[in-house]
């Protein structure tokens, strides 16, 4: 499966400043593994403890993978995978449960 990956500004230093990458993989995790081979260091920005990092949103087409199958979400040819930094914050660090 070939998918287009949209890279946010904050991660572009790792992808030689490219905004879009064409990557193969049958699942989100496989795409991330393949990106890691080409752009070492990107995986640890996206995954922690086997799950997508809570500082990051990952979407397959229009869907946040938190509400589908997470990193196992399967991909079809031509899908788009969008990575965005989660925008969040608050007043009390102790109350962060995500």
């Amino acid at each position: 499966m070939q998918v287009t990956v949209h890279i946010p500004t904050i991660l572009r230093p790792l992808t030689e400043n490219q905004k879009r990458l064409t990557i193969t993989g049958f699942s989100v995790l496989e795409v991330i593994e393949h990106m890691e081979e080409r752009y070492p260091g990107i995986k640890e920005k996206l995954i922690t403890g086997g799950k997508a990092h809570h500082f990051i949103n990952i979407y397959v087409n229009d869907d946040d993978i938190r509400f589908t199958d997470g990193l196992s979400t399967s991909l079809s040819d031509g899908d788009s995978l969008t990575i965005l930094p989660a925008v969040a914050g608050g007043a009390e660090p102790a109350l962060l449960h995500t």
């Binding site: 979407y59 229009d62 965005l84 989660a86 925008v87 969040a88 914050g89 608050g90 007043a91 962060l96």
Partner: peptide, 14 residues
Amino acid sequence: RSAVFFKFDPNQQL
């Protein structure tokens, strides 16, 4: 929906 925390709705953000 909190008095001490915010997070952009992920779908709206996309």
